[in-house]
Design a protein around this nucleic acid. Structure first.
Length: 352
DNA sequence: AACGGGAGCAACCGCCTTCTA
DNA sequence: ATAGAAGGCGGTTGCTCCCGT
């Protein structure tokens, strides 16, 4: 089946938007909402195609957009999520409040991709390009480990990708897990740190699991003390997805360092959270919104793990402890390996 | 001061998915 | 069930600015 162009191109303006055009678009949307994008240009008095208007709005004019330099914390998040999700910029953007997918994509292509490449890490696979690059001291072991983790992660991501593709029955709207909601149900969902989402997913969304009816997962998470990443601060979750809060870095700095008698890091008990998320299967299967949230949880779960959140308590709907897998530790180590490499190569170093 | 090259980013293009009649 | 419309997404382009020569 052929596709008609999104709009009649004859006589329509292209190229950079003028302040007058911005003003027209802004004024129209503020008064009427965008409605049908195709119909919008004519109604707003713009000589643009609807697609161009939509893009201008979502990438530039929307009021909830933060412009300016990408912070270190955001940078780390992008790297982590890119390793998990690949070039799925919109999915990555849902975890970076007020940033657009286009901005993240641009930042990746102009900054992070080059930086990783210069460090000898393939920006596509996040695998080291060559072990010889890090043949000195303990780094060779680290590289080997990294390679192993990357392979493991790659296989897992393939499975995840399939799930996520199917999950996008409702694409996660921008920041679907974030503070914009006033819905208490959404808030409680947003607070959920980690859960066996894939298991829940299989059961809830497609009804393949007998336990699907009323999946209830209690998750207790904590920040693992040995991590050096400020992004590990997850205690600010109330009402937001909590992960990207800008003030997290400050909170991190203020955190005490807990160590046991032999110097091993111990979790910061004060930052632990225990939450219960009830997933009702019948509601889930009929609610595309719910599926969208679950999709967000898939990503968030991996992110939590990667940032060193240790899943210490994990029970199924029957209250049975289902344990903790090395799986989580493997991912944490892999993510930290990349982050350590990045962090140990500041932008002012010769490698850049 | 002029020029060239690279970086950064806004915007476009085309494909894919989802919705709807 | 199907076709067309609409929206969403990722890749790419091209313009502008900056910096070094």
């Amino acid at each position: 089946m052929g596709r008609s162009p999104c709009c009649d191109k004859v006589g329509l303006k292209k190229g950079p938007w003028t302040p007058e055009e911005d003003q027209k678009l802004l004024a129209y949307i503020e008064e009427h909402g965008h409605g049908s994008w195709r119909a919008l240009p004519a109604r707003a008095g713009l000589q643009r195609c609807g697609k161009s208007c939509r893009l201008r709005w979502t990438n530039y004019l929307r009021p909830d957009i933060k412009r300016g330099k990408i912070s270190l914390q955001e940078e780390q998040t992008i790297i982590q999520l890119h390793a998990l999700l690949g070039n799925r910029w919109s999915a990555i953007a849902t975890h970076l409040p007020k940033r657009t997918d286009n901005e993240i994509k641009n930042y990746w292509n102009t900054h992070l991709k080059k930086r990783l490449a210069k460090m000898g890490i393939d920006p596509v696979t996040h695998k080291p390009k060559s072990d010889t690059l890090m043949s000195n001291d303990g780094q060779s072991k680290n590289a080997a480990n990294l390679s192993h983790m990357a392979q493991w992660e790659s296989a897992r991501l393939e499975a995840e990708a399939r799930l996520v593709r199917q999950s996008k029955l409702q694409p996660p709207s921008a920041n679907s897990f974030q503070a914009s909601t006033s819905n208490p149900v959404q808030k409680s969902m947003g607070q959920a740190r980690c859960l066996d989402v894939l298991k829940a997913w299989n059961g809830v969304v497609w009804g393949k699991n007998d336990e699907a009816a009323g999946v209830s997962v209690t998750v207790t998470t904590g920040i693992v003390g040995e991590l050096g990443s400020p992004t590990s601060t997850l205690s600010s979750a109330a009402g937001t997805n909590g992960i990207m809060k800008e003030e997290s870095e400050e909170e991190w700095k203020q955190m005490p360092e807990n160590r046991d008698e032999i110097g091993n890091a111990t979790p910061f008990t004060s930052n632990w959270e225990s939450e219960q998320v009830a997933l009702n299967s019948s509601e889930a299967c009929s609610s595309r919104e719910f599926r969208g949230k679950l999709y967000g949880l898939v990503t968030e779960c991996f992110l939590c793990r990667w940032r060193g959140m240790r899943i210490v308590g994990y029970t199924n709907s029957g209250g049975n402890d289902v344990g903790v897998s090395d799986y989580y530790e493997d991912n944490k180590n892999y993510g930290n390996s990349i982050l350590n490499l990045v962090n140990s190569s500041p932008s002012h170093s010769p490698i850049f």
